Computed example of a mutant assay.
Amino acid sequence: MTHPTNPDARLPNPGLPDPHLPGPASLRTEAVNAAHPDLDQLGTADLVQALLDDQRHAVDAARRAGPALGSAADAALPRLRRGGRLLYAGAGTSGRLGVLDATELTPTFSWPPARAVPLIAGGERAIREAVEGAEDDREDGYAALRGVGAGPDDVLIAVAASGTTPWVLGAMQAARESGTLVIGLANNAGTPVLTGADCAVLLDTGPEIISGSTRLKAGTAQKIALNALSSALMVRLGKVYGNLMVDLKATNAKLEARAVRLVQHATGCEEPRARAALVEAGGQVKTAIVALRLGIPADEARARLDAAGGQARAALDAR
């Protein structure tokens, strides 16, 4: 397939291995873990403990990636402030983790679903079942990213444990041609997902305790990194006041009760007053807090928040 944005370039044949990509033998995530050669002979309690202990490497890898994640957040913020979207691209476990992260932004931070777009190799069916061969189709990854109309204000988070997944690399190529910021998360150093990204985040988890099963600590490290990155972005975008999730979307009884508690905690008021303020604010926690703290109507509180770019602390300080 020849693409109009790059008529002289052809993507690698999706049915053939890309000779430029590192082979499995050079990837640490594919190496045989020498620590537990007799894993299958352990008693159940020892087996579970060994699996849990190995997960600690995921936390260590994510912590080492902290500076890179911070730089990625800083690079993404101006685009999101201009109205850009968070796009996710991954295959298999990595793709499903992207779907999870994108989906949870709406109830947690009232982030519009249209501005968190998860793309997974094999399409929606791949969320629940393996779609064999989908991850090898680089052209389909390219087409998937092109299909959502990515532009220069958007941010692509490309995730692949191997760092070599052709479908993800196709999405990254389309993103670069569209001027989209590319953040690459991978569990192997020096791989194309990292070298081809604007912001590279290495999650070096090493060989899996069940060799090659990157749904284990490689996936855990990705989950931690995605949580940290998207949550940091939401904090910087004014979705949090102090450490309170003041932009949550109360869509069930549990979240409605949480909204009341958040207003009470932030203002020191009693439950009936918090509930009344939320009703007046149309369920918006942040608006209710500003209204109660400043003793003003909800409409005026909302106007103050709009003028402060949605930042509750700035709206409260601008007296």
Rank of each mutant, 00 (worst) to 15 (best):
Thr2Asn: 02
Pro4Gly: 13
Pro4Trp: 11
Pro12Phe: 05
Pro12Met: 04
Pro14Ala: 14
Asp18His: 08
Asp18Gln: 00
Asp18Trp: 01
Gly23Val: 04
Ser26Phe: 03
Thr29Asp: 03
Val32Pro: 02
Asn33Thr: 12
His36Asp: 12
Pro37Lys: 00
Asp38Asn: 14
Asp40Phe: 06
Asp40Asn: 14
Gln41Met: 04
Gly43Pro: 03
Ala50Glu: 09
Arg56Ser: 14
Gly66Tyr: 09
Gly70Asn: 08
Ser71Cys: 06
Ser71Met: 12
Ala72Met: 07
Ala72Gln: 03
Asp74Thr: 14
Ala76Glu: 08
Ala76Gln: 01
Pro78Cys: 11
Arg79Gln: 12
Arg81Met: 09
Arg82Gln: 13
Gly83Lys: 12
Gly83Asp: 03
Gly84Arg: 12
Gly84Pro: 08
Arg85Asp: 10
Arg85Cys: 11
Leu86Ala: 12
Leu86Arg: 03
Leu87Gly: 07
Tyr88Ser: 13
Gly90Lys: 00
Gly92Thr: 06
Gly92Tyr: 05
Gly92Asn: 02
Arg96Asp: 10
Leu97Ile: 13
Leu100His: 12
Thr106Pro: 00
Ser110Thr: 09
Pro113Ile: 07
Pro113Arg: 10
Pro113Val: 07
Val117Trp: 07
Leu119Gly: 07
Gly123Trp: 01
Glu124Ala: 10
Arg128Pro: 00
Glu129Thr: 15
Glu132Gly: 12
Gly133Ser: 02
Asp137Gly: 09
Glu139Met: 03
Asp140Leu: 10
Asp140Pro: 07
Tyr142Thr: 12
Tyr142Ser: 08
Ala143Asp: 15
Ala143Asn: 14
Pro166Ala: 01
Gly170Asp: 01
Ala175Trp: 10
Glu177Gln: 13
Gly184Ile: 05
Leu185His: 08
Ala186Glu: 09
Gly190Thr: 07
Pro192Trp: 04
Val193Pro: 07
Leu194His: 11
Gly196Lys: 04
Asp198Lys: 04
Asp198Ser: 01
Asp198Pro: 02
Val201Thr: 13
Leu203Val: 11
Asp204Phe: 07
Thr205Val: 15
Ile209Tyr: 08
Ile210Thr: 15
Ile210Gly: 05
Gly212Thr: 04
Ser213Cys: 05
Leu216Asp: 11
Thr220Val: 01
Lys223Leu: 03
Lys223His: 02
Leu226Arg: 08
Asn227Ile: 11
Ser231Phe: 10
Ala232His: 04
Leu237Tyr: 10
Gly238Leu: 11
Leu244Asn: 09
Leu244Val: 07
Val246Thr: 15
Lys249Pro: 00
Thr251Ser: 15
Leu255His: 11
Leu255Asn: 02
Leu255Ile: 09
Glu256Tyr: 03
Glu256Cys: 11
Ala259Asp: 11
Arg261His: 14
Leu262Met: 14
Gln264Ile: 14
Thr267Leu: 11
Gly268Asp: 05
Arg273Glu: 15
Arg273Asn: 07
Leu278Cys: 06
Val285Met: 02
Thr287Gly: 04
Ala288Glu: 01
Ala288Cys: 04
Val290Tyr: 04
Ile296Val: 15
Ala298Asn: 03
Glu300Lys: 10
Ala301Gly: 07
Arg302Asp: 00
Ala303Met: 01
Ala307Trp: 02
Gly310Pro: 03
Arg313Thr: 01
Arg313Met: 13
Asp317Ile: 01
Arg319Trp: 09
Arg319Phe: 04
